[in-house]
Design a protein around this nucleic acid. Structure first.
Lengths: 342, 342
DNA sequence: TTGTATGCGTTATCAC
DNA sequence: GTGATAACGCATACAA
C-alpha cells in the first residue's frame, strides 16, 4: 500500500528541474526543449507520478468530467447511447458522471449541486424535462453554453439538441401501414408531457389526416414507453368495439409488450393486427414476429452529442448558435406488419 | 451568468463568523452553537453558496465519487444494476463515474489513471476480468480495500464479491429440463475466459453427470452472451446429427437469439426443442414464447454491492474480511420449455 | 526556455 | 465553541 503518492515536487527533484517545468511538460509539452522534456518524462516514469485531479481542477477551475442525465437508467433504450457517449468523451479525456434524472430519491437538488460545485464542465441531457431547479443551476453555474440535449429536447429551454427526425419516422410508419391497406390505425403513445410522446402523437394524427384516415379518440392509447404499458394497453385495445387493424407504437418496448399481451388474449400478429414500433432496439430483430419499426441510430446520436459538446467546450464560451441536428431514421420492415384484412 | 460563485469567505463575511466556522457548520454541524449554526446556514442561503468540490477533495484527499466498471455498456443486462447502484450511491452522497472496461479504445491505462489520480474513492467492477494494469493501480492507489466485484468476480483477485448463486441456478435449470423428460441437453455457453461462462458450463456438466446424462462434446456451443451469438449457435445446432431436445443457455439474450434463429430454420420451441435462459431480463416475460429462465435479482445485486462498498468506505481501511455474498436465484417457468418428445 | 512565487477554496491544527 | 493560519498539489504570471 503506497501511501505516499509522488507529487510534482518529487518528479522535479528526480528530473533536476523546477516544478513549473514538470507542470509544463504535462500541459504544454511543446514549450520545452527536447532534452528537458525527456528528463521530465523519465522522472515521471521512475517515480510513477500521476497528476492529482483535485489539485489540477482547483487550480484550473475545470473538472475534466461531464454529466450525463438519463431519465430512468433502468431503461435499456439508453445503453447504446450511454456506450457511445462514453466512448467519445473518454477519448477526449473526459470522465462521465451518470445521474438518473427521474429516480424517485434523486432530488433535482443533487443534480443542481453537481453543476454548482464545479464537479462537471458540461452536461448532456437525455431528458427533455429539465426541472426548473436544474435549469437555474445550469445558468447560475455558467454552464448554459456547455449543455445540450440528446434524443429528447425541450421547447422551452434554448439548448442545442441532437435528435432523430421523429416526424419523418412517424410518417414512414403510417405510410407503411397505409401501403398495406390499413385504414383504421391506433396509436400507443408515450407518457404525458414527454416531448417524444407529444411529437410522435401529433405527427401521427397529422399523417392520418394526410392519408384521409379518421382516428377515433379511443384509438389513442396512453402508455409510458415501457413493456408493461404496452401489455396494459393491449387489454384495453382488444375490448375496442370497432377495432383498428393496425397500431403504431411510440416505442419498441411498448410494441413488444403490446404484441405479447395481444397473443395471450387471442389476437395474432400480423394476421389479425399489424404493429409498428419505434427505436429498433436490439431485440426487435429477434422478436417473434420480428418487429417492424423505425430505426434510430442510437450510437450515432450519442456520438454526435458527445462530439458536439466536446467541440463547444473547446471553443470560446461566447455566443454560440443553438444548433439542432436531426439524425435520419429508417423504416425497418419485419414481420409484425402485413396486409390489412379485407 | 454568475461568474463569481460565492466562496466560504463570502459566507463567513455575511454570517459574521470565521471561515473555519462556516466549514465546521458544513462538516460537523453538531460542534456549533444553535445560534451560530443558524447564522451560518442563513448566510449560505443568502449567498447561494456551494462548496467547491475540487478544493474540498484536495484538502480531504477524498473524491466523493466511485468508479463503476462495466464490461460493454451497450449490454442492457447491466441497466438495472446500473440503476440501483446509482440510487444507493447517490443517496450516500457519492457520484458515479462510469467506465466501459472492454471498450476497444478505452485502455486499461485510463482506468488506472482514474484510480491513481484520486478521482474516485472506490470501485465496483461488474467485470471479473480485471487487467493486470488496473489491478496494480488499485493496490498502488491504496484502494484495494475499497473495491469489490458485482455479478462477476475473479478467482485470482482477492476482493469481496456480490453475485448470484450461479451454481444453484444452473442446477435448477437442468433439473427443470430433466423433470420434463429431457435426457439430451445442449449448452450454449458464454465467452471463453469469463467466470460466469466458466462456472455455468462446469456446473452444467456436473449436473448432467448427477442426472446420469451424457453430453456429447458438440453439444457445447460457444457463445458470448449476445443475441447474435445465440442466433449463430442455432445454425450449428440444427445441423447436429443427433440433436438434443433441450438447450440450456448461459444468458437470456443468447436464448432469445437462439430461439429466433431456430424458428427461421424450421424448429419450433417448445414443440421441437426446449430452451432455458439465465438472467430473467425484462423482455423474457414478453418473448414469444415466454422464456423459461433463471432469475437474477439484478437490482438487488446492484443495491447490495453499493451498500457493501459504502459500508467499507465508512470503516477503517484496515484488514477487513473478504466477503462473498451469494444472492438467491429462482427458476421462472414460462413457455419455452415443455415435455420432451417421446 | 526555465525558475520563482503566488493563489485556487477548503479543511484541520492549533491556540484562545 | 470559535478564530487565525497553514497546508492540500498544481498551474500560471512574471522574472530571469
Amino acid at each position: 500500500m503506497q501511501h505516499n503518492p509522488p507529487k510534482i515536487k518529487d518528479v522535479a527533484l528526480v528530473a533536476g528541474v523546477s516544478t513549473a517545468t514538470v507542470s509544463r511538460a504535462l500541459t504544454h509539452p511543446d514549450r520545452l526543449t527536447e532534452a528537458t522534456r525527456k528528463k521530465v518524462f523519465d522522472a515521471i516514469r521512475v517515480t510513477g507520478y500521476r497528476v492529482n485531479r483535485a489539485a489540477r481542477n482547483l487550480r484550473t477551475r475545470r473538472a475534466g468530467a461531464i454529466l450525463l442525465l438519463v431519465p430512468n437508467l433502468g431503461n435499456p433504450f439508453f445503453s447504446a447511447i450511454l456506450s457511445s457517449v462514453n466512448e467519445v468523451l473518454a477519448a477526449n479525456g473526459y470522465s462521465v458522471l451518470v445521474f438518473d434524472s427521474q429516480q424517485p430519491g434523486a432530488s433535482a437538488q443533487a443534480v443542481a449541486d453537481c453543476l454548482l460545485n464545479g464537479s462537471v464542465d458540461g452536461v448532456i441531457s437525455l431528458d427533455g424535462q429539465m426541472s426548473e431547479i436544474t435549469l437555474k443551476a445550469l445558468t447560475d453555474a455558467g454552464l448554459h453554453n456547455s449543455a445540450l440535449f440528446c434524443c429528447e429536447w425541450s421547447e422551452d429551454i434554448s439548448l442545442p439538441s441532437i435528435r432523430s427526425d421523429n416526424a419523418t419516422g412517424v410518417q414512414l410508419a403510417v405510410a407503411h401501414l397505409v401501403g398495406l391497406g390499413h385504414r383504421r390505425i391506433a396509436h400507443l403513445s408515450g407518457p404525458e408531457g414527454n416531448i417524444l410522446a407529444t411529437i410522435r402523437k401529433s405527427t401521427f394524427l397529422d399523417a392520418c389526416t394526410t392519408h384521409d384516415l379518421s382516428v377515433a379518440p379511443e384509438w389513442i392509447l396512453a402508455g409510458d414507453f415501457s413493456l408493461e404499458a404496452g401489455a396494459r394497453a393491449a387489454e384495453r385495445f382488444v375490448d375496442l368495439a370497432d377495432r383498428p387493424t393496425a397500431v403504431f407504437c411510440a416505442s419498441d418496448a411498448m410494441a413488444l409488450g403490446f404484441i405479447a399481451r395481444c397473443r395471450t388474449l387471442g389476437l395474432e400478429v400480423p394476421r389479425d393486427l399489424s404493429v409498428v414500433g419505434f427505436d429498433d432496439i436490439d431485440i426487435a430483430a429477434y422478436a417473434n414476429p420480428g418487429l417492424s419499426t423505425i430505426r434510430q441510430d442510437r450510437r450515432g446520436l450519442g456520438r454526435m452529442a458527445a462530439e458536439a459538446l466536446v467541440a463547444r467546450l473547446r471553443e470560446d464560451h461566447s455566443a454560440r448558435e443553438v444548433e439542432t441536428i436531426l439524425a435520419p431514421v429508417t423504416l425497418i420492415e419485419r414481420h409484425s406488419t402485413g396486409k390489412a384484412p379485407d
